[in-house]
């Protein structure tokens, strides 16, 4: 038996919206420690990693570790049936091999309870070992600013160059019709820091050129949290982390560009 209760369905709705553009089907792992998933896009260029810790749930029970395969598009449609402020219960019975994942949504005044279930699927997916890494530069910035920059530069080109130095981070793109850039200056964190402030921890300047198509998908996680951190080292995958308050994170990894 697994049973996880989230105080607000909206968090889970936002998580699925953040993942479903990049990944259509995924295995979800339930363990004593919480719920997690790791999945690559079909081209193996990008990877997402979700962690929801057991102590972030209102209640959490997992008698035996289970891996359940879901179609994220179907899950997204199902979650549209939940009110944002509904309490959400996810449960599955593994007595005879779980073949469905069950959801119940209870309104804040407890006067409405709805129940839905999602058919599970067998998914044969590769998983990868992600080593712990020290990055040369970590940019911590507003997630809404990140979304805006990705949107703005997508109107100019197909790739963005991210150049981090001690002074700031510059996002730039160029295309057939022209070019554009946005510079965010490093701000020392001080009391009363604006939510839009950008800070950069850096050992040496780092530059990456990345396809905007993937970054647009990652930006779908912005509604989950105010901040995003971009972790960069030359010639290794870039990691974008969106922390989900009190409960976990979504991390996206994107392979660096290579000369074709």
């Amino acid at each position: 038996m697994i049973e996880a209760v989230l105080a607000q369905a909206s968090i889970f709705k936002k998580i699925v919206e953040a993942l479903k553009e990049l990944i259509s089907e995924t295995n979800i792992d339930f363990s004593e420690a919480g719920i997690s998933l790791q999945a690559m896009d079909s081209s193996h260029i990008a990877l997402c990693n979700l962690l929801l810790r057991d102590d972030g749930f209102k209640s959490y029970r997992c008698d035996r570790a289970l891996t359940l395969g879901v179609n994220l598009n179907s899950l997204s449609k199902l979650l549209k049936c939940a009110g944002n402020d509904d309490e959400m219960r996810i449960f599955a019975n593994d007595d005879s091999g779980a073949d469905q994942l069950n959801f119940s949504f209870e309104s804040a005044n407890s006067e409405r309870v709805s129940e839905f279930s999602l058919k599970l699927m067998d998914i044969d997916a590769d998983s990868v070992d992600i080593p712990d890494m020290d990055y040369q530069a970590i940019i911590d910035m507003s997630s809404s600013e990140f979304s805006r920059i990705i949107r703005d530069l997508s109107s100019v080109g197909e790739a963005v160059s991210i150049d981090a130095t001690k002074q700031g981070v510059k996002f730039s793109s160029a295309g057939d019709a022209g070019k554009g850039s946005i510079l965010l200056k490093h701000q020392k964190s001080v009391d009363g820091d604006s939510a839009l402030a950008t800070s950069i921890e850096i050992n040496e300047p780092v530059s990456h050129s990345l396809a905007l198509k993937f970054l647009s998908s990652f930006a779908k996680a912005a509604p989950l949290t105010d901040r995003v951190s971009i972790h960069m080292t030359e010639d290794v995958p870039v990691m974008f982390e969106f922390k989900i308050s009190e409960i976990g994170h979504i991390r996206f990894y994107l392979a660096p560009q290579i000369d074709d």
Partner: peptide
Amino acid sequence: KPAQGRLDAFFKTS
């Protein structure tokens, strides 16, 4: 023209 690489070149598949 540069192209996006694949993660398989960086992370070990298990």
